[in-house]
Design a protein around this nucleic acid. Structure first.
Length: 305
DNA sequence: AAGTCGTGCAACCGCAAGAAA
DNA sequence: CTTTCTTGCGGTTGCACGACT
């Protein structure tokens, strides 16, 4: 497996694209389509490497790209997906069809990341930053900072927004290849059973009432493939001492001090009960744990204290 | 007006995966 | 099976520009 060498060769122009170059590339792609980018510069009359042309097309010239400020919905989708997936910008971008992965990555690095830090959350894990670490990020003082004091307001606002979104949205996480199976994640509001809710704090109620999980697998496809659209994401937050539920063998069992509604739990169990493949079982376990934990931690940071 | 600093964003780089030869 | 080529991803860099002093 080699590397694309073209950009390392001398003679190719680098730096910002001019309108003339943009036009040449645009005209060429509109006429001939894209693909085989290596040959594009010569055919289009550009002194750029193919990689540069491809990038320019994907990130800037492609006609269906939405530019400008991110809406609050987009913002929130990015935060949620990042909590779930980590820096999987291309997958996140797949949920925001008119945004490029580069744009989302930039938005994260220049905007969301700093906001999370100000809120006392680790941008990598979405977990609350310990005081010492928080100071390392440039936040935190012996006395409560302005940002920290504002967190209650931020939390209330975010919490309301999350609840609203949780009622309607559906995330579809899929692998790059169209013939890979899909893992569907639905966010649905759930009700805790009355008998169990007493044992939960108000805070936990708020958090765990909001999200549940449905795993849907496509059983028409070869099972060994399906595990790797999950595990290859290198899921964040896999290691922790909190488990909402885990997959054991081919059935689910709860082993947490938190609660999940019986109805939704049954749904999950039904969905995964037919899984035979060990890899899928492990993948589902990792995925389930990571997703729930990251969402819990994310939300916990926003829940009013 | 000039200099400094911070921010946002386009673009580059290196690496890896998968397809093709 | 090995090598080469192409595409795609994520991290990082550096420039442009506006705000501030």
């Amino acid at each position: 497996m080699g590397r694309m060498p073209c950009c390392e060769k001398v003679g190719f122009k680098k730096g910002p694209w001019t309108p003339e170059e943009d036009n040449k590339l645009l005209v060429y792609v509109e006429k001939h389509g894209h693909g085989n980018w290596r040959s594009v510069p010569a055919k289009a009359g550009l002194e750029r490497c193919g990689k540069s042309c491809r990038l320019r097309w994907i990130n800037y010239l492609k006609p269906d790209i939405k530019r400008g400020n991110f809406s609050s919905e987009e913002d929130h989708t990015i935060i949620q997906l990042h909590a779930l997936l980590g820096n999987k910008w291309s997958i996140i971008a797949a949920h925001l069809p008119q945004r490029t992965d580069n744009e989302i990555k930039n938005y994260w690095n220049t905007n969301v990341k700093k906001r999370l830090i100000r809120m006392g959350l680790d941008p990598l894990t979405h977990k609350p930053i310990k005081r010492n670490n928080f100071e390392d990020y440039g936040g935190g003082h012996h006395e409560q900072s302005k940002d920290t004091m504002n967190m209650d307001h931020v939390a209330q606002w975010e919490n309301a927004r999350l609840e609203a979104e949780a009622r309607g949205s559906m995330l579809q996480v899929e692998s790059h290849s169209s013939h890979h199976p899909q893992l569907m994640l639905s966010k649905i509001p759930t009700q805790l059973s009355p008998s169990s809710s007493d044992s939960l704090s108000i805070k936990h109620n708020t958090v765990y009432n909001m999200y549940d999980l449905i795993l849907a697998t496509n059983h028409d496809l070869p099972s060994p493939v399906s595990s790797f659209s999950v595990t290859s994401w290198k899921l964040p937050l896999v290691s922790t001492n909190i488990k909402l539920f885990t997959v054991t063998g081919t059935s689910l069992s709860s082993e947490s001090d938190f609660n999940v509604s019986e109805t939704s739990f049954q749904m999950i169990e039904d969905r995964v009960s037919n899984l035979q493949d060990d890899d899928i079982t492990m993948a589902v376990e990792a995925f389930t744990t990571a997703r729930c934990e990251s969402l819990q931690e994310l939300l916990r940071g926003w829940v009013p204290h």
